[in-house]
Design a protein around this nucleic acid. Structure first.
Lengths: 347, 347
DNA sequence: ACAAATTATGATACCGGTGTCATAAACCTA
DNA sequence: TAGGTTTATGACACCGGTATCATAATTTGT
């Protein structure tokens, strides 16, 4: 029997290859390949004996060799142009939650939406690495050129984005009901008795900005209010822009008693503005943000905000890519809801 | 001439392989391989004509095939167990700064220092992916088991860590003079006239925690002061731990007028404690942190802190891995200096 | 100018897997 | 039980590169 040969091999402590398995199992390497790939046309007996050898000598197929033969790697690309570190890390963690143990690895690829080489850079990345799949995050998950590229390259991709009532482009999508969450925020402020409410919008052209504004507005309208154009300013989802926008709004003659910022970064910018103007939160000014980022818990008082299950969304995105093409869900929708803390109070 | 053949090939718009180049350049694929790898024994004339073809048909060697033949991939692993999203993203960005255009990609690999499979998980990752190199971040860049593993696997690795006067283990290291930065922080508070100064330490066993404490103490001692054990508490580099530690210290009968936290997260935790106790910053309490994280600029008042050039350090780490083994610097040392903002003032 | 030394190039095997297709083995059916 | 199907397996080429080593081309020495 080949027991001796097996023992001897194990003693050598060398990385096992498919040839080793084939030799020790007394089958051809092709049969081993079939076992690895769960081909149905392998006799149960053969399969078991091959698997036994695989387990004993600790064989694990080489992703590079496999990738070369398959003409695609076992790498998932995470492509984004997003300055929010916490968000990015959350997405990475979520994707890795799904990838762990799958044999696939996550390759991160930040990019620059405004660069000339934006598309070409991503094309090179995907083509050269022969990526198994791609996850794209907002705001580039809305970019037409990028979506066209992904279709052209015929690479599996999943968009992470805000659910919007109108458009539904092809591909797979992980969406969140940002509108609903913001609607709750609007209702919350209205219910607290605020009549004069400021609004800091996100950057133009961002789906999330549009959806959050629409949702917030719906919330106000449900209570007979509306966004006051005099108390509205646009930001860029950054701290500085939120600070500037808040200053602008709070310096109006008709200073509002509450303020909604389209993300936490800008809400924290509004904190700074309030601090500078000597306004106490929430006594003089209620502030509400969006994202439920860790910062929301770190500022004083803790920020009322709308949560976004980003990690879970990323996990769902990666899971979709690992799923057989036939079984993939075209879209998976996540909730988004209000988290009331101490930065909002009665008017 | 082969002009026609070249044109025809370009028309086909198919991904070029080394065989295409060889055929069109009328040389063997091995010669093309030599050109790709900058082998010296290629006639200049041959090299140029091959390069011309490569450029014209846009040939780029397949990393998988190359990796298979080389027995190592073109992937750099970034391995860490660090909860600080901003820090992690900074390191990723820095590493990518160096990797951009090099043909190597960054694979992120968070891990769990406390897991049973901590080492085995990393071993699998490195072995299976045949990583070209590995960057490890604090605190696992100090882990003996991990360092032993990396030596065993004979993989190129770079440690990112705090410079410490005593130990210098093997391998390559990117270090920062955290001690010096904290010394400056200590001097700063002393010079402001504070006599009673609280200290929030980092977690036990962390090199950075030890170094920061030592540096801060040196700074105080330079002005005839010292860390007061009654006003010292240990944290875990987290917001919550900083909050708890600050509360403990600030509730002492001999409440200090200044407080140094060993990182910004904990300093922000101290902000919360001050807020809860009705202490104004810096009028009633000066606070100083470490990291110069984005949060330091976002809180009100902006936090005085010590900066750490993390992105540059990561870039240096990745650059080291891309450098030929002979030309690598054993260690590269970065400065760390005080950034005075508005959270510290005269006693 | 010619043999010897050096340099440039190519033929072939190989890295570790998968695809194709032919063939061997097992299973039916009558 | 023979003959036809179906199923399981293997031989061999191939994915796109690199390593080895033999040979062709060039340079050097005298």
């Amino acid at each position: 029997m080949s027991e001796d040969a097996i023992e001897e091999f194990i003693q050598r402590r060398k990385k096992a290859t498919i040839n080793d398995v084939a030799r020790l199992a007394r089958v051809s390497k092709k049969t081993v390949s079939r076992v690895i790939n769960a081909s149905p046309s392998v006799r149960a007996e053969t399969r078991d004996s091959v698997n036994a050898i695989i387990a004993r000598i600790g064989f694990r197929p080489d992703p590079q060799a496999r990738g070369l033969a398959f003409r695609r790697s076992f790498l998932i690309g995470l492509i984004y142009d997003n300055p929010n570190a916490q968000y990015v890390v959350n997405m990475q963690m979520g994707a890795l939650d799904a990838l762990r143990g799958s044999g696939s690895e996550l390759v991160v690829h930040p990019c620059d939406l405004r660069s000339e080489r934006f598309i070409e850079d991503i094309r090179d990345f995907i083509e050269l690495q022969r990526l198994a799949g791609v996850i794209i995050l907002p705001p580039i998950s809305e970019d037409k050129r990028l979506l066209a590229l992904l279709e052209e390259l015929e690479v599996a991709y999943v968009r992470v984005s805000a659910l919007q009532p109108t458009t539904t482009k092809g591909g797979y999508a992980i969406l969140s009901k940002e509108r609903i969450g913001c609607r709750a925020a609007g209702e919350h402020l209205a219910q607290l008795g605020h009549k004069s409410i400021g609004f800091i919008a996100g950057p133009e052209g961002y789906t999330s900005a549009t959806e959050r504004r629409a949702g917030f507005r719906e919330g106000l309208q449900a209570h007979g209010l509306d966004i006051d154009w005099e108390l509205e300013a646009q930001g860029a989802y950054t701290f500085e822009s939120g600070h500037a926008a808040a200053l602008k709004i709070l310096n109006r003659p008709n200073r509002p008693t509450a303020l909604f910022a389209s993300n936490d970064e800008m809400a924290i910018g509004a904190y700074k503005a309030a601090f500078e103007l000597g306004l106490r939160i929430p006594a003089d000014l209620s502030i509400c943000g969006y994202d439920d980022s860790p910062m929301a818990l770190r500022v004083s008082p803790p920020l009322t905000t709308v949560n976004l299950p980003s990690r879970d969304m990323a996990k769902a995105a990666a899971t979709t890519l690992l799923t057989d093409e036939g079984d993939r869900k075209a879209e998976i929708i996540f909730e988004s809801g209000l988290v009331v803390r101490e930065s909002t109070a009665k008017a």
